[in-house]
Amino acid sequence: MTENRVTENRVTEPQVSGRQDVRQDVRLSVDQVQKVYQRDGESFEAVRSLTLDLHQGEFACLVGPSGSGKTTLLKCIAGLMEPTSGSVVLDGQQVNGPAKGMAVVFQEYGRSLYPWMTVEGNIELPLKVAKLSRAERRARVDEALASVGLEQARKSYPWQLSGGMQQRVAIARAVAIHPSVLLMDEPFAAVDAQTRAELEDLVRKVWKEHDMTILFVTHDIDESVYLGERVLVLSSSPTVVQHDLVIDLPAERDQLVTRSMPRFTELRAQVYEQVQIAKTNKTGATTVSAL
């Protein structure tokens, strides 16, 4: 338990800067992000004060009970939603809208891929936007397709592929832009268990191959422990980071071997416990009407 960093509302400045001195390679810095929705004249605080740093090459999973504002948080980080207060900084640049260098893989792969374009076309589109040359685009598409193992499907349309393959295309599209940070919003929640296991291993592989920095949102405790190098447990809404846990499992993960390790079971139990605390601990879950 000694290596667990419990970072309840890391708001005190000296602590934060102290850590930054140690690690200079911060990719993504989320600082006291708060999101309050206005609905029918009442305000609802989805995210209270969220602070987290993501370093180069880190694979972090965000777990939380359902309704814990995970998607809201992710949208704020991706620049798709403006936080009520606080800031998101990517590679030293304040995020004020969707930022270059940030890729997102959505849960709804069927709607995220454009059905009027082939697999190749979907992957190439962001590269066209980035004004890459034809040859360079071609190389990137080849590379991305190879890393998700879909070379044969390049001329297919997304709707001709299975759900798992569609999500691979979405991953390839994200990988192709060589993002600083890849955000994944419960990407495997809609596929069957077997496909899910395959995709988990694929993401680990891609992460290693491309030395990527990934923030992976999930509600699945096992998945978070299996995938991540670090698991952040979120509280119920209004969300804060309730627990920050280092996953000290061997880098080489295997569905059978890793999942049957005693350490895996221990870590899973810890995360489980924290999620249970998050579920029952409703102290913060109040409607804020006086804002």
Binding site: A103, F106, M117, R173
Partner: peptide, 21 residues
């Protein structure tokens, strides 16, 4: 579709490119 729109925003689609694709 909202997800199609969000995807477009994430990958920087704007102006004529957004219209066309």
């Amino acid at each position: 579709d909202g997800v199609q729109v969000d995807t477009g925003r994430v990958y920087g689609l704007s102006g004529l490119v957004r219209l066309r694709y």
